[in-house]
Amino acid sequence: DHDVVPEDKFQETLHLKEKEGCPQAFHALLSWLLTQDSTAILDFWRVLFKDYNLERYGRLQPILDSFPKDVDLSQPRKGRKPPAVPKALVPPPRLPTKRKASEEARAAAPAALTPRGTASPGSQLKAKPPKKPESSAEQQRLPLGNGIQTMSASVQRAVAMSSGDVPGARGAVEGILIQQVFESGGSKKCIQVGGEFYTPSKFEDSGSGKNKARSSSGPKPLVRAKGAQGAAPGGGEARLGQQGSVPAPLALPSDPQLHQKNEDECAVCRDGGELICCDGCPRAFHLACLSPPLREIPSGTWRCSSCLQATVQEVQPRAEEPRPQEPPVETPLPPGLRSAGEEVRGPPGEPLAGMDTTLVYKHLPAPPSAAPLPGLDSSALHPLLCVGPEGQQNLAPGARCGVCGDGTDVLRCTHCAAAFHWRCHFPAGTSRPGTGLRCRSCSGDVTPAPVEGVLAPSPARLAPGPAKDDTASHEPALHRDDLESLLSEHTFDGILQWAIQSMARPAAPFPS
């Protein structure tokens, strides 16, 4: 592969990997390779389809078979030569091979799209000592099968071997295949498990690692696999990028399955594409389908809103127990993405979901129960707010008499603000006073009005108090039968009158 990737590009890729991570280095090298001529790309395919690569990765054979028959990708048995050289000459001794072996032994695996480039050397060096003999053996194999790289107009793939297949390693990572398949204008990513390549439709969760975000852009890794992070704060999961590491605690105790298979379609829109997988259930989501939507993949363990709600429900009964003089119970939860139609709101002032922060849900004790107040519409209280300059209440639009249902020339009671006709409430011909108009209920007259088809109010509507207090003497005590009587009149003013009279009014101040 030294004929494909020059030394300066190799060093530039290593520097970019240390600065921005393996995914960015892979993407940059792939983009550079696509700008080369067809001879360089053909050399790339020839390096990929060597015999030892085909033996190690069985899924490469179907890719090789898909090439046109007129494309010669065979390799000479006596060494490598550029395709432009007409004579089959043995190339001179390859010093770059020693360079590659020494550099890969030092860096474990470079971040390139060629056999030198995919593992994360920093994480491997940190986690190597417990498994040094086995990992050293794996390093000797890295130059042979560490990076199976493929690129063409139909298929483009980048393979990364790992030393996680050490025997006896619980939940060992089998390997990473960062794979971009450009077929019919689409893009897919796969993962390699035990020599087999699994596409998103049959993606397997190998051991402790999972394909957290099938994305090839942005600074985030394709698999949430930063070796420096180790395990999740809650004892979460091992990262795919942690090559040759000792077994780590796999999943939280509440995880239903340690080796679950995540779905390959969004649980909201039932469509495929780039998904984020939940650590607590097999569901996966688009970032845009979450509520609120996320802009980037959160670091650490992530769970959907259903799993978060289940966790909150487990903690909430203990938080609601009476604990005198104790601060509110704080339950730190990872930043969760909410699927459509589901929402768990945190306290005000918290950062938005999706940031690399930890939301704190506070379970406050329930407030003391209070008697429910009568629910009145805002339009129902409008007549009470229509007060004239002299303190006389004006008529609201649409006000109707509670007896006849007519809204023409209605009066407004100064005591309960109900609309009424003087002739309907006082049919006996009582003279109307000039000021202080009161309806039949507030004036103490319980004589029913002779209106055909309208039920008369119940005599129990009024329960006047002592006459010594004029204001308190007109406080009506309405009961269920009074409400039914008012409802039978089918008037809004009657219902409003009952609601206003049912509310307690402050006692009249004593004259000074």
Rank of each mutant, 00 (worst) to 15 (best):
460 A>Q: 08
352 L>N: 06
391 G>D: 10
398 G>V: 12
357 T>N: 11
389 P>R: 08
245 S>Q: 12
367 P>G: 12
383 P>W: 15
389 P>I: 13
422 W>L: 10
262 N>W: 08
440 R>A: 07
453 G>E: 05
423 R>T: 14
382 H>Y: 14
269 C>E: 06
454 V>Y: 12
359 L>Q: 12
482 D>F: 02
324 P>R: 11
487 L>P: 01
498 W>S: 03
415 H>T: 15
427 P>H: 11
369 S>C: 11
505 R>L: 15
243 Q>F: 11
287 L>W: 06
402 G>S: 06
369 S>R: 10
327 P>K: 06
486 L>M: 10
511 P>N: 00
401 C>D: 04
489 E>L: 00
433 P>N: 04
288 A>T: 09
263 E>Y: 04
348 P>L: 12
323 R>F: 12
299 S>K: 05
449 A>Q: 07
265 E>V: 08
424 C>V: 02
474 H>T: 03
252 L>I: 10
257 Q>N: 13
402 G>A: 12
412 R>W: 07
381 L>T: 12
479 H>N: 10
273 G>E: 12
295 R>K: 06
406 D>R: 05
397 P>T: 07
373 L>D: 07
259 H>G: 11
431 S>D: 06
331 T>G: 03
377 D>E: 11
456 A>D: 12
435 T>I: 12
498 W>F: 02
430 T>A: 05
282 P>V: 12
507 A>H: 08
498 W>I: 03
436 G>Q: 07
318 R>K: 04
512 S>T: 10
285 F>D: 10
293 P>D: 04
304 C>K: 13
389 P>A: 06
421 H>Q: 02
380 A>S: 09
425 H>A: 10
300 G>K: 13
377 D>P: 09
379 S>A: 11
442 C>G: 03
474 H>Q: 08
327 P>G: 12
264 D>A: 09
500 I>S: 04
291 S>D: 12
384 L>N: 11
406 D>G: 09
273 G>A: 09
422 W>P: 14
271 D>I: 04
315 V>M: 04
458 S>A: 10
309 Q>F: 11
259 H>V: 09
381 L>I: 14
403 V>R: 05
385 L>P: 09
439 C>K: 02
320 E>R: 12
272 G>C: 11
408 T>C: 13
366 A>E: 08
391 G>I: 00
496 L>N: 00
428 A>C: 08
330 E>C: 13
297 I>R: 11
498 W>L: 06
357 T>E: 00
402 G>C: 12
271 D>T: 12
300 G>W: 15
351 P>N: 02
459 P>H: 05
290 L>C: 06
357 T>Y: 15
447 T>I: 05
260 Q>I: 05
284 A>R: 09
434 G>I: 07
268 V>L: 10
331 T>K: 06
504 A>M: 04
506 P>M: 03
296 E>R: 09
256 P>H: 13
265 E>D: 10
266 C>Y: 04
380 A>K: 05
374 P>Q: 13
421 H>M: 01
365 P>E: 10
294 L>V: 05
316 Q>A: 10
298 P>A: 13
263 E>K: 06
300 G>Y: 13
436 G>T: 06
454 V>F: 07
447 T>S: 07
267 A>L: 09
445 D>L: 09
264 D>N: 03
325 Q>K: 10
254 S>D: 05
409 D>P: 02
251 A>H: 09
254 S>F: 10
244 G>S: 04
443 S>A: 08
313 Q>E: 12
277 C>P: 05
445 D>R: 04
442 C>E: 01
301 T>G: 13
303 R>Q: 03
427 P>A: 12
443 S>K: 05
361 Y>G: 08
351 P>W: 15
366 A>V: 09
406 D>C: 12
454 V>K: 07
494 G>F: 01
495 I>P: 02
248 A>L: 14
308 L>D: 08
314 E>L: 12
341 G>A: 14
287 L>I: 06
285 F>Q: 14
335 P>Q: 07
331 T>R: 10
332 P>D: 03
375 G>K: 12
457 P>G: 15
377 D>F: 11
444 G>L: 03
373 L>E: 12
251 A>N: 07
477 A>M: 14
259 H>Y: 09
247 P>D: 06
257 Q>W: 11
401 C>K: 01
426 F>W: 04
486 L>D: 03
418 A>G: 06
376 L>H: 05
483 L>E: 01
364 L>C: 07
382 H>F: 15
335 P>H: 12
431 S>T: 07
243 Q>N: 15
270 R>L: 12
248 A>G: 15
254 S>K: 04
318 R>S: 10
285 F>V: 08
245 S>W: 13
432 R>Y: 14
438 R>V: 03
260 Q>M: 07
508 A>K: 03
331 T>N: 05
267 A>F: 15
437 L>M: 06
315 V>H: 14
507 A>V: 11
346 G>C: 08
286 H>C: 14
400 R>T: 07
470 D>V: 09
498 W>C: 02
498 W>P: 01
454 V>T: 15
250 L>R: 10
485 S>P: 04
